[in-house]
Amino acid sequence: MSDPNQDYFAHHTSQPFAWKERKKARGTWRALFESFAYLPPFNRMFGKDSPSYAESYWYCMGGLTFLSFLLLILSGLVLTLFGPTWWQGTYVGYVTKSIHYWTAQSFFFFLFLHIIRVWLTGAYRGKRWLNYAIGFVAFFLSLGENLFGLLARGDWESQFVSMHSDDMLFTIPGLRLISPENFTSALIIHVALIPFVLLILIGVHVTLVKLQGIARPL
């Protein structure tokens, strides 16, 4: 390519579906599973090439964290619609709550692996530090989100943790006005306030990865 700018923006042009060519180049199964990337809106979103070192599964960990986040929102929306009586009193509600629980486990599992991969590859160097910091703020905020989720659950653990934290974390001036045994406010903080901020932070994080590209190898 003669014009370097052309090269850069090539990522953002839509790609033809081109099934036959892809099938020939990648084999039937790969071509089939890769089809989504050649359909709207993804055909304009993803660059189709990547540096070879980034082809390892370690580079999927941020994406799987993101997937878990979407699943958390989805299962959380269902829980929000039907409410505490439903998730505590019915089997389907309990299963939905359990899926939400395990999705949180998956979120943090992949997030820890993501952090390890970012550290070991020194991906925070240079201009990527900003995104590293945004990622970390999102991580700590997720831990807070976890606390309020626990308080909003409405079981024995919520009850005990509300009082135990009331005598520790919530004795601090400023924080002590908060009443952690306030189920209603914990629920609002958990389903509306923190997720809203998290959504923005994670959105900016993922967008920056897209704009800055993946870090060079060490």
Partner: peptide
């Protein structure tokens, strides 16, 4: 390193496995 065609075929498979696993 070289620039190579990205392994998009993994995405639906891995996402499917994780989703089914949590369910």
């Amino acid at each position: 390193f070289h620039v190579v065609p990205h392994c998009f075929w993994r995405y639906p498979i891995v996402a499917g496995i994780v989703t089914v696993a949590v369910i």
